[in-house]
């Protein structure tokens, strides 16, 4: 798969009251086309700053970003973002259909953008509600509208900033499955920022674990799970549990087991072997703990 997004030594610092605060301390990674990559990190580690830098909403103090081969300056042309706060991100004065059409007005004629918006609403299972106002929908449905809006835009890269953090657990599961389904159907390239470890393992093809500020890539894990995922069987599978524990350990400042810490994607070993080796270590660890207690 060709590389869709390449982030090289991206760093961001801003002036605080007590001198300069370094939020991101040089982050490098790549995302291949069609891949879903999750970024996890402790609270306040600059995950959102990283996402905003890639989206062009802020200009990072150093480093560079390349989107399908061309260097990014400002806001890239074919990039979409799904924000956490769907109720603020959607426009309450527009109907669902018109919300999805809104970003297409600049490039498409009326008939074409209507067709595209209707199609995207169908993908997320909302074909019946195009005429409603967004506030008449539940939170989960509103976030589906935001996803439809992003998909209708046909972005090269879809960025999601804590997309399911504001919905209840049940809805979150539904939205996770919906996201996996639509992004696979359309071979979308997705970068999801989340603080939820389980979510990152469940959704991701890969997981980038960030350290606390100034954040660096602590690990680049390949999720060694079958592509078809299920909220119950996947979450109870050994591989899932292992990877979740490992991610949690890395997040809390632990070192990856039986391997040296990696500081950037370039130095990372083949993720799959790393993950399986960790899985072995994890099993050994649980076994040991079981005997001592």
């Amino acid at each position: 798969m060709p590389t869709m997004l390449e982030v090289t030594d991206l760093g961001h610092s801003y002036r605080a009251k007590d001198g300069v605060h370094e939020a991101i301390g040089g982050v490098s990674f790549t995302v291949d086309a069609g891949e879903l990559v999750c970024v996890v990190g402790p609270s306040g580690c600059g995950k959102s700053t990283l996402l905003r830098s890639i989206a062009g909403l802020i200009s990072p103090t150093r480093g560079s970003t390349t989107l399908h081969g061309s260097p990014v300056q400002g806001v890239p042309d074919d990039l979409a973002v799904v924000f956490q706060d769907y109720s603020r991100s959607l426009f309450p004065w527009l109907t669902v259909q018109r919300n999805v059409e809104f970003p297409l007005r600049r490039s498409l004629g009326r008939a074409e953008r209507q067709a595209r918006a209707a199609e995207a609403l169908d993908w997320v299972g909302l074909s019946g509600v195009g005429g409603k106002y967004t506030w008449q929908l539940s939170g989960g449905m509103q976030q589906r509208v935001a996803i439809a809006r992003a998909l209708a835009y046909r972005p090269a890269l879809l960025l999601m900033d804590e997309p399911f953090a504001s919905v209840d657990a049940q809805t979150r599961f539904e939205l996770e499955d919906l996201l996996l389904r639509v992004t696979r159907e359309h071979a979308s390239t997705v970068l999801v920022v989340t603080h939820d470890i389980d979510e990152s393992v469940y959704l991701g093809d890969r997981i980038l674990v960030l350290s606390g500020a100034p954040s660096k890539v602590v690990a680049d894990l390949t999720v060694d799970l079958p592509r078809e995922r299920d909220q119950i069987t996947t979450r109870e599978s050994e591989a899932f549990v292992t990877l979740r524990s490992e991610t949690a350990r890395l997040l809390h400042g632990g070192r990856p087991r039986s391997t040296k810490p990696v500081t950037s994607a370039n130095q990372a070993e083949d993720g799959q072997t790393v993950a399986s080796r960790w899985a072995d270590a994890e099993r050994a660890e649980t076994g040991r703990r079981a005997t001592t207690t």
Binding site: L57, V75, D77, R88, S89, R105
Partner: peptide, 29 residues
Amino acid sequence: IDATKTDTAVVFRIPRAQWILGVVLPGAL
């Protein structure tokens, strides 16, 4: 007009006229 709407408009590269007439004015109405 809240920051998320501003960000949304920037990310989707909403042209200036559409931003004023389609977001700022209705939001301020």
